[in-house]
Design a protein around this nucleic acid. Structure first.
Length: 419
RNA sequence: GAGCCUGUAGCUCAGUUGGUUAGAGCGUCAGAUUGUGGCUCUGAAGGUCGUGGGUUCGACCCCCAUCAGGCUCCCCA
């Protein structure tokens, strides 16, 4: 044991081989869904300019005000990206992706960073997969994004999910609503929780999001934003709902659903699971028609979602969904003596070239130990060679499952492997 | 950032009111089987008892701090 025990930083974990196999499965499933929806992958840097995140997500949000991993180097300010949408929007502008024509239907999978206090389902480095449709104001895009998200969970077999849907309106609708909300809450101001009181002036909509017990009965009768939507927002919302109905995607309307990022307009949604515990959001998203303009691009309507990989894994664990079968190797070459080791090192390539997986002992263990290793690795066949066999031009070909073994040429063994 | 709970081998856990060399199962490695896995038997390795202080003749056990994890908030993925 080393004297210095290094470990991962607070809230950051290693993904060990058994876990990594599950990740590979989930990632490939997500890629399959992306392929069938014909969304193209985009990979953006993990470090972005701090100002991009602050401007995109909103300086007053929790993420920007207290959860960023940021540092400076010379003149430049770096931040580990806390979410994926602002970077994708930045890339869209930087590379003039609208020039590719049509809407840009993009997806991503990757690590995100937020300096929150870790707990189950919440880490400082976590992973999201998400998708964006950039360049469409049509409710079709909202429906497509939600359908994409739901398809991932459907293919995995996740149950007990609730899709919450709301519209947070546009600036005009929101201004009217904000006034109505403040008028409603003002008489109760002293009874509200401290947090909610602080939100009263700047962002009264967030009061609706409160889980503080003293706020619940007060907010229960608060005006609903859906009653304050202007005609454009209202029509949009109705069309999103009817598209979802047509797709057979069930949802519940949650007039108090307010998301924590400033850039949302119109559609907002969140997918929650009762199998998650305290951190119950599997994913969420919405429309952000003003973000790209805010970041300096041409006004471009867009909609997207983001989902947590770790939370998806927790849900699968809770539901007993098997994500990864035990990995096994096709062929294990067991050797005795240096001549045989050298022969194996050279000829294992031939097996691999046929498309089968093959491995051998790399540490000079006894044959018994090699056999045990072959068993542990789930080898279907063992090819056992020593100097005697090599002199006769033969190998021992063993079928592990039934322990049958025959002495044949390596060429014949190769033929048998592929039957 | 706040409150509560937990922290003993790689893993899951024992450890008697504080009392000598801290245990088990699983796993790992080796032997029984001088060239052959899964079962069985035998043996070995593996622990600064999360870390650092303090109390005490003596601390895995009591106290404080700290780190890490869990739960509830906050908030989100």
């Amino acid at each position: 044991m080393a004297q210095n025990n290094f470990s991962t930083h607070h809230g950051m974990v290693d993904i060990l081989p058994e876990e990594a196999a599950k990740w590979q499965y989930l990632e490939s499933l997500i890629r399959d869904v992306a392929r069938s929806f014909h969304f193209e992958e985009i990979r953006t840097p993990i470090l972005e300019q701090t100002e991009l995140i602050a401007r995109g997500i909103g300086a007053l949000t929790d993420i920007v005000s207290k959860e960023m991993f940021a540092f400076s180097r010379g003149e430049d300010n770096y931040v580990l990206r806390p979410e994926g949408t602002a970077p994708v929007a930045r890339a869209y502008i930087q590379h003039s992706l609208q020039q590719r024509g049509g809407t840009q239907n993009l997806f991503y999978i990757g690590p995100m960073f937020r300096a929150e206090r870790p707990q189950k389902g919440r880490q400082r480095q976590f992973h999201q997969f998400g998708a964006e449709v950039l360049g469409s104001a049509d409710p079709l895009a909202d429906a497509e994004i939600i359908a994409f998200m739901m398809e991932v969970y459907k293919r995995i077999g996740v149950k007990n999910m609730v899709l919450k849907l709301n519209s947070v309106g546009d600036p005009e609708s929101r201004a009217a609503y904000k006034t109505a909300l403040q008028d409603y809450f003002r008489p109760f101001l002293s009874q509200l929780s401290e947090i909610s009181q602080a939100r009263f002036d700047k962002n009264p909509m967030r009061i609706l999001d409160s889980k503080e017990p003293e706020d619940q009965h007060i907010k229960a009768n608060a005006p609903k934003i859906t009653d304050y939507l202007n005609e454009d927002c209202s029509n949009h919302f109705e069309k999103v709902k009817s598209h979802l109905d047509r797709l057979g995607i069930t949802y519940i309307l949650d007039p108090f659903l307010v998301r924590g990022l400033d850039y949302y307009t119109k559609t907002a949604f969140e997918l929650t699971s009762s199998d998650l515990g305290g951190q119950d959001a599997l994913g969420g998203g919405g429309r952000y028609d003003l973000l790209i303009e805010e970041l300096g691009g041409k006004a471009t309507p867009a909609v997207g979602f983001a989902s947590g990989m770790e939370r998806l894994l927790i849900v699968c664990e809770e539901l007993g969904i098997e994500l990864a079968k035990p990995k096994s190797v096709d062929v294990y070459i067991v050797t005795r003596g240096e001549v045989a080791q050298a022969w194996a090192m050279e000829n294992i390539r031939t097996i691999r070239e046929t498309g089968l997986s093959a491995t051998m002992d790399l540490s000079g263990k006894s044959m018994k130990a090699q056999m045990k290793d072959a068993d542990r690795k789930g080898a279907r066949f063992a090819i056992i060679v020593g100097e005697d066999e090599l002199q006769q031009g033969l190998v021992n070909f063993r079928v592990m499952a039934d322990s049958t073994e025959e002495s044949i040429s390596f060429t014949d063994a190769l033929a048998k492997l592929n039957t």
